[in-house]
Design a binder for these strands. Structure first.
Lengths: 320, 320
DNA sequence: TCATATAATGCACATAGTTTCAATAATTTT
DNA sequence: AAAATTATTGAAACTATGTGCATTATATGA
């Protein structure tokens, strides 16, 4: 009896391997295999599936980019992302920005059509990527800032400059927001909100389907401190509340929960509720200090497309 | 300029690898990949092809039987066979016969249906394979000898015994031919041919679509000598004409040409012309001494399905 | 810069592959 | 050994994939 079973297994494996070979290696179609082996096409189809499931067939992607692709697939699955793009890590951040720019150009080419709007967040990463981005083709897209200006004149990280740079490169239009992102009082913010120019932009934001945002940590080196918009005490206060950083000036913790705080009422930026409704939110960031805020942005689903580097990708997966 | 080209290549390879990964590894269909990446389904299809052609995708068959499958594919191509089956070589011929029997059972299961006829040739190989064959399922098939009897009573290699053994195993019918294969004179052969029993069988032969035959060399150990049907002088005479051996008592050289000879008119067997019309002719043989006659049978297209062992398969490919 | 050649794109159709379902065959249980 | 259960099968309906062709976009050369 056992002899019979083992010869059945042998026979089965033989025929599965043979069919797999004919299909995948010799490139016959299922119809031809069926005719050749005198079996039904249905059986060929089922045998191929069986061969795949029993690992008789192994398919591999051979590419120098393979490891990045695998990281991307893993992150897409773990954080339920629409898409993830990973570039090689490099000691020289300029290299990383450059590679990110190449992938971002390809991504935007797929995501945007003539007439579409692109929401723009803030951050050094965004600024640097945008600087080296070369559009695949010109498009009549409209750049819309998602928050007020940050930084003083001369420190060009404010959203308007990123918007206008991208607008110029794409040959499209860029809107400017004529208000700071951080105001002195709730009253001041409410007044700015009602300003016709500002409110027009926030009205446009309602229709945005694609946005590009950065993620920032609360370290002392943070651009927010450098620009003078926030003090070290502000950061300590936010850390005390459990914040890990911000996405588009929305402060969040590592778990992805928004950290409501006393500063919120003075911030002029797209609301968390609205941001979560945007179809494609591309978040770009890398580096060990960003891990916590990135985890928050991913877990809280503030972003659904991630652009990062290899080392950061590995860390994110470890902590997933 | 060169920078732009290389980043285009990078971008292209990236997207091809990504699509290939999604398709082959993550098992998304083309429609879903298209939706995910915001491109047309057509483009996905074309990208997958490009990825295959540029060897980004490599497909391998993993199976302990892989090397046999590869030999089979190679032989099928080189000799334009309908099918080829290769079993592991083994010092113990009984093991080889056993494995051949397993594959033959599976083959016959595919080739034959209820009511079909199976033509049976002669030879020690056939006898031994048939002895260990276990049918996959019972079938009402009819065994028809393709030549007269060989050997004396007690030396059971004559076709009738192979036929009846297989007939019993399959639960089918086996015809017996009541005449020797080698007669004393042309007249004797012509008389036997007219015998009602014999002519009935040769009439059945006309309708045969599947046949199982052996291939025999002209060595002194050949069964034909042992049975006394041929003398060493006969063999020397045939060798002198360039014969390498026989398929169903049709003498052929290494190139596949039939060697007409003075013995032919005394042989009672299916004609070469008729044999070549049979849809499926399964030839089974192995061993170094058989190489020449097997090459002839393959090149002369006397057989279109080959059943052999690994070492013989390798030799055949070397000499192809 | 414009005209021309060349390549990329997506639609509509053609081909290929999978799944459902009803029938048949194999297996297990009684 | 008969009955009940489970697995296998192939035809047909469905889904997925590939391709020819007209169109649009891109590159090339005058």
């Amino acid at each position: 009896m056992s002899v019979k079973v083992s010869s059945d297994d042998f026979t089965e494996q033989k025929i599965l391997s043979k069919i797999a070979q004919l299909y995948y290696v010799d490139d016959l179609n299922q119809q031809k295999i069926a005719a050749k082996l005198n079996i039904s096409r249905t059986k060929v189809s089922r045998s191929i599936n069986k061969a795949k499931q029993s690992n008789i067939v192994s398919i591999k992607i051979n590419s120098p980019l393979e490891k990045f692709i695998e990281l991307e697939s893993a992150l897409e699955k773990v954080f339920e992302l629409k898409e993830c793009l990973v570039v090689p890590s490099n000691e020289d951040p300029a290299q990383v920005y450059g590679n990110m720019a190449v992938l971002l150009a390809e991504l935007l080419d797929r995501l945007l059509d003539d007439g579409d709007m692109l929401g723009i967040g803030w951050g050094a990463t965004l600024k640097n990527i945008s600087a080296s981005l070369v559009p695949l083709k010109k498009m009549n897209i409209k750049m819309v800032p998602l928050l007020g200006g940050l930084g003083k004149v001369g420190i060009e990280i404010h959203t308007n400059s990123v918007s206008s740079m991208l607008g110029q490169k794409y040959g499209g239009l860029s809107y400017a927001i004529h208000s700071p992102a951080v105001l002195d009082s709730r009253q001041a913010k409410e007044i700015m909100e009602k300003d016709s120019g500002v409110s027009e932009i926030f009205k446009l934001c309602e229709k945005i389907e694609t946005a590009l945002i950065g993620m920032s940590d609360l370290g002392e080196d943070s651009t927010l401190i450098k620009t003078g918009n926030f003090s070290i005490d502000d950061f300590k206060y936010l850390e005390g509340l459990g914040a890990a950083g911000d996405v588009n000036l929305i402060f969040i913790n590592e778990e992805g929960k928004e950290i409501k705080n006393k500063l919120d009422e003075r911030l002029l930026r797209m609301s968390p509720e609205r941001l979560k409704k945007v179809k494609n939110v591309i978040g770009a960031a890398f580096g060990p200090q960003k891990i916590r805020v990135m985890l928050g942005a991913l877990r809280g689903e503030f972003i659904n497309i991630l652009l990062t580097d290899e080392n950061t990708a590995i860390e994110l997966i470890k902590n997933a």
